[in-house]
Simulated scan of single mutants.
Amino acid sequence: MSLIGTEVQPFQATAFQNGKFLDVTEQNFKGQWSVVCFYPADFTFVCPTELEDLQNQYAELKQLGVEVYSVSTDTHFTHKAWHASSPAIGKVEYIMIGDPSHVISRNFDVLVESEGLADRGTFIIDPDGVIQTVEITAGGIGRDASALISKIKAAQYVRNNPGEVCPAKWQEGGETLKPNLDLVGKI
């Protein structure tokens, strides 16, 4: 079953951010745009490159009204230790959620049960807490956080402009489409 168009399911978790632990629930994803980025595990190889890249885009994401949440099945204590020991992760300012119970990973359908780890999954969630995009990649394939910017801008545009859609490779300010019977077979 596709998660597109569904509300984020309830959860409670502890996260690490800027030297502090904080409680996070699905309610945190309401009232703003959110990016939830699942990754397999702390203290690994591809994961720190992805999270550092996401941090490099964090200021622009914040300007777009987006909060970022990374999630792995590690604990919030492990996130703190990784943040303290890794130069790449030490830069991270966004919220790092611990999911040792696997509830969040199951809710987002990214848990690899046999390993107890999450797939690489990226989700864009609208201010109503509804999932708008899903991207899952294999463990060895790192994601490019800059690709999120265009997707978020398109999702925000479509939300703010009912009746319009964004074609492939749409960039902010570019032409959109207004689906109607006259367009059928002419694109």
Results as ranks from 00 to 15, higher is better:
Val36Lys: 02
Asp53Pro: 03
Glu93Gly: 15
Gly5Pro: 08
Gly121Arg: 06
Leu64His: 08
Tyr69Glu: 03
Cys166Gly: 06
Ile104Asp: 11
Pro162Gly: 05
Phe45Asp: 11
Ala15Glu: 01
Arg159Cys: 04
Asn180His: 06
Arg120His: 14
Ile89Pro: 06
Ser101Ala: 11
Leu61Met: 15
Gln156Ile: 15
Leu51Trp: 12
Ser101Val: 02
Leu3Phe: 01
Ser85Thr: 14
Gly142Gln: 10
Asp74Pro: 03
Gly185Met: 10
Val165Cys: 07
Lys62Phe: 02
His76Trp: 08
Arg106Ala: 04
Arg159Glu: 11
Thr73Pro: 02
Gln132Ala: 06
Gly116Ala: 04
Ala138Thr: 15
Met1Arg: 10
Gly65Asp: 09
Ser85Trp: 00
Gln17Ser: 12
His102Tyr: 00
Ser105Arg: 01
Ser2Leu: 11
Gly121Val: 03
Ser70Asn: 02
Leu177Lys: 02
Leu177His: 04
Arg120Gln: 12
Leu181Arg: 10
Pro87Asn: 08
Thr44Asp: 08
Leu117Arg: 14
Gly173Pro: 06
Tyr39Gly: 13
Phe16Pro: 00
Val103Lys: 04
Gly121Glu: 08
Gln55Asp: 07
Gln55Ser: 08
Phe123Tyr: 14
Asp119Ser: 12
Ser72Thr: 03
Phe38Thr: 07
Phe38His: 06
Thr137Arg: 13
Asp128Thr: 09
Ala147Gly: 13
Thr44Lys: 02
Gly90Gln: 03
Phe77Tyr: 15
Tyr58Trp: 12
Met1Val: 07
Glu60Thr: 08
Lys169Leu: 13
Lys20Val: 11
Gln63Gly: 12
Ala13Asn: 02
Glu60Val: 07
Ile187Arg: 14
Gly31Tyr: 07
Val134Leu: 13
Phe16Ser: 00
Phe77Glu: 05
Ser70Pro: 02
Ile95Gln: 06
Asn56Thr: 15
Arg159Val: 08
Pro100Met: 07
Ile89Ser: 03
Pro167Lys: 01
Ser150Tyr: 07
Met1Pro: 12
Thr6Ala: 04
Ala168Pro: 15
Ile187Ser: 10
Val66Phe: 12
Glu50Leu: 11
Ile136Cys: 00
Gln12Thr: 15
Val68Gly: 05
Pro48Phe: 05
Val130Thr: 05
Phe123Cys: 11
Ile89Cys: 03
Gly121Ile: 06
Lys80Phe: 00
Ile141Tyr: 05
Gly129Tyr: 01
